[in-house]
Amino acid sequence: MKFEGSREVNTSAQAVWDFLTNPNNMAECLPDAKSHEVVDDKTIKAQLKVGVGFIKEVFDSTISYSEVTPDSKDMKIKIDAKAKANTATINIDVHVDGADSAAKLQWTVDAVMAGRLASIGQRYISKVSDKVIEQAFECMMSKLAP
């Protein structure tokens, strides 16, 4: 399942980039996190609660950064999430560009869900994932440009 999105924010691209690449900032913006722990500058471990319809599961998740390229402001975020009878692997490509006070954040997401949630909730999953990722970026925006 693939989807993409973008947001504009009235701050500099560099500020967005700096915020994004610091896992401590990102950890604060994980939606519905029951707990989180910043392991190193590229890794966060968290328990994320995700609900699809009336099925709710807590996923043990590892969020890791890779291919962080400051020159082009490109990075990859990978989320490996595991719960009872469900797993999810989400790869997000993030790119930041734009003018000084009009940064643009773009993301493309490739999510692979397996297990009961995927079977029962397939029709809702893209909506849910979309919402979760929007929430994360929304939180980030509000912290950057309050």
């Binding site: 692979v112 869900m113 397996a114 995927a118 079977s119 029962i120 397939q122 029709r123």
Partner: peptide, 14 residues
Amino acid sequence: YDEDGILLTSNFWD
């Protein structure tokens, strides 16, 4: 089934 081989109709709701 979806393209990942997940059965989307695995109970009497679906």
